[in-house]
Nucleic acid binder design. Structure first.
Lengths: 335, 335
DNA sequence: GCGTGTTACTAAAGCGTGTTACCAGACAAT
DNA sequence: ATTGTCTGGTAACACGCTTTAGTAACACGC
């Protein structure tokens, strides 16, 4: 280490000064000498060596189980990454994007941490049927789920999907709709999907409207799947005057399918989305939807993770953020 | 290292076997013993220690200069990340997301690499006025730009923005439009922005249409800025029958502004976008646009970077991918 | 029997930090 | 004078891996 030479002190002293180690006695003059030498040489500590010595990588992983295709069409990713970066930058950490194969080993998640390039991780859209998660629970690896799993002991940050979905469907019911279709955001193995469908059913039952399973279908994240679901609903011949689409992204496809079938929105069919993606308000007609605080969700997840990484056990295991009904122009009153 | 004990060999041998080091003689029986021992113990090499010993982090950085706000609203990020992950997974590398302050130090980029947590980097939407890039050029840090800078010696992957923009505007001209407004995707400091404006001007000049600077304005990446630009154009009182919007994302806002002003698309005003984001085809009317191969762009950038990291000097310094006019329903023929 | 290779493997020296244990000196209290 | 405490600093080991230089054993040609 040349800084030590230039400052005329030992490597130890350099390390102590530059890391501002507390409870150690170094004279102000020496501190200054070290700082000046480091500045002069443009010294940048080697993060890898630090990581090895301290056994902390100073990095967290954003772990996704989806395929690159699904990642590429994930509307929320930018907001989630934005939220994480907000927090991470303050804490001088790094952010790794990790993917895990759909048919991964039990050890898959653990490997990421055991290999020690991350200190903790945030798991996106966990799947109910993911056996590897159990291994994670048993370990003491700091982990935060974005999206809750009911029988999991892992920490999580989420909205109350069921209540939020109910709020959306209640709104349609208040407008006088009683034949309401439901397009879920994703296959039922992704936990948010059945929860939102449940909220849909809750609202119908509270209003004494019979649930018709034929009016429920499951999309697969992207607009295309929404297009296909909507066509299938229309082709089924079942009558409905409104659709609750549990994802704005999917709703984009649904709207296109309605237009293709010459159904006007909201005159013929009302549509309410979920998420409030940036385009929702700019689409035609502006989409009424449930706002999901995506960026806030990820920054909260990150804060929670940081606590776990410091060994602090947070007061609440499941952080639940509020959603909000955003009324725009895609739903109309039925007489 | 317990694997060594269990297999009854030295740490060296374990390392040699597990890394499949070439040109070294180890008997098949020993190899098997080592592999079995490693398997039995669930041995996972420590990536940090490997990085320190080999002086390679086996990670690349996706570096962005934008603020978290802009990152959160970046339509392309998922596709770019998807493209990178595609390549990275095959090569067993990791992906770090890095941000650099807008008013950063000259050394900012170099620090990332000097700190040795990445071996190379991909720079997103570089700015013309970024002095730190010069430092990067002088260094031998493997770097690939996504988006070209004219006077930069750095490697780059991009489309020909000028030609692509010209193609878009030519299409409008062919349809009979001659009063064509232009909304650039971003402030002129981002290189793609002036290039696309230049393509717009090229097309007009070739058609002997006078360029009216009052019909050109600059948005700022997001729909909101497109909304405002379009309102300003409408308020200016200048006549135009078509708008070339150099970003689909911005075009979303532009369309909303046109609707707000009771202009029908394409009956009153034709609009052509740029990028072909996933929602373009699902918007109403489906947006005619220029397709930017975003995912391909980032996977090519990644492949190029991998070559640089291996010390291979690629045949071409600037990879230019093709764009394509995607005709949908947002432009109409003028008699 | 001697050099010359070849095969199969290992000891030990890094990689660049953090950190523990220790030391020398100054000063105060006993 | 001895002991204890505080200050300011350092030597040396540890982190978990790769890699260089080397060794021991054996085969081969002459």
């Amino acid at each position: 280490m040349d800084v030590a030479n230039l400052a005329g002190v030992s490597r130890t002293t350099v390390s102590l000064v530059l890391n501002n180690v507390e409870g150690i006695h170094i004279s102000p003059e020496t501190r200054l000498k070290v700082r000046e030498a480091a500045e002069k040489l443009g010294y940048i500590p080697n993060a890898t060596a630090q990581a090895l010595a301290t056994r902390r990588a100073r990095a967290i992983g954003l772990v996704m189980t989806r395929s690159p295709h699904h990642i590429a069409s994930d509307t929320f990713l930018p907001q989630i990454i934005g939220g994480l970066l907000d927090v991470i930058r303050e804490h001088k950490l790094r952010l790794l994007i990790e993917t895990v194969d759909a048919n991964h080993q039990d050890r898959a998640y653990l490997e990421l941490v055991r290999a020690k390039h991350i200190d903790g991780m945030i798991l996106l859209t966990p799947r109910i049927d993911d056996a590897a998660l159990t291994k994670l629970e048993e370990s003491d690896v700091p982990t935060v789920l974005m999206g809750k799993l009911d029988d999991s002991s892992l920490f999580s940050v989420d909205v109350d999907n069921r209540v939020a979905a109910k709020m959306a469907v209640n709104y349609l019911i208040q407008l006088g709709h009683c034949r309401i279709a439901c397009i879920a955001n994703a296959p039922p193995t992704y936990s948010a999907s059945p929860e939102r469908v449940q909220g849909y059913k809750d609202a119908l039952r509270d209003a004494n409207i019979e649930v018709d399973e034929d009016l429920i279908c499951y999309a697969d994240f992207d607009p295309q799947s929404g297009f296909e679901c909507t066509q299938a609903l229309l082709d089924s011949g079942k009558a409905f005057t409104a659709i609750f689409v549990a994802s704005d992204n999917v709703a984009m496809g649904a709207k296109a399918a309605l237009r293709a079938a010459d159904k006007r929105i909201p005159d013929d069919i009302s549509i309410i989305g979920f998420d409030d993606i940036p385009w929702a308000q700019y689409s035609d007609p502006p989409l009424t939807t449930i706002r999901l605080p995506a960026q806030k969700l990820s920054s909260e997840a990150c804060l929670l993770l940081l606590k776990l990484m410091r060994g602090i056990s947070p007061e609440q295991q499941h952080v639940v953020l509020d959603t909000e009904l955003v009324v725009r122009k895609s739903c109309r009153q039925v007489r």
